[in-house]
Amino acid sequence: MLNKVAIISTSILLYKVGGILSLRSQLLKGILEGCILSIINMQPAYGYELSVKLQQFGLSDVSEGSIYPILLRLQKEELIKGEMRASESGPKRKYYKLTEKGYEALQLFTHHWELIKEPVDNIIEQGGNAHGSD
């Protein structure tokens, strides 16, 4: 009981310091960038379409508007390229496609993600089990 109180108060403290908060948003930003690159790699897409796809994949926690600063950054880094052209339903839209550099960045992201995904999954799983059997 006392242990749990200690853990809770420590995490509240950490949360307040902001370390966890900024880590979370930093982590999410990097992951979002990777996801956007990956979706664009499947098929050129425009802004609204991208946010719908992210949500369809279950990232409903991400606010729709937050993709635009990311798209701007990816363009600045020349990982994606926007092109205005007419869509099937009529209006001209800015479609994004991956550049050569963007494709390489996606490969790198996928590689890093694979490296990190399994160990993190394992750690969380075991940590969760230990807590459950306590």
């Binding site: 425009y46 802004g47 609204y48 946010s51 729709e64 508007g65 635009y68 798209l71 701007l72 926007g82 205005m84 209006p91 839209r93 800015k94």
Partner: peptide, 13 residues
């Protein structure tokens, strides 16, 4: 360009 994208997005939403 980004202002128009945001507008299109808002219209759809």
């Amino acid at each position: 360009e980004v202002l128009l994208e945001m507008l299109e997005h808002l219209l759809q939403a």
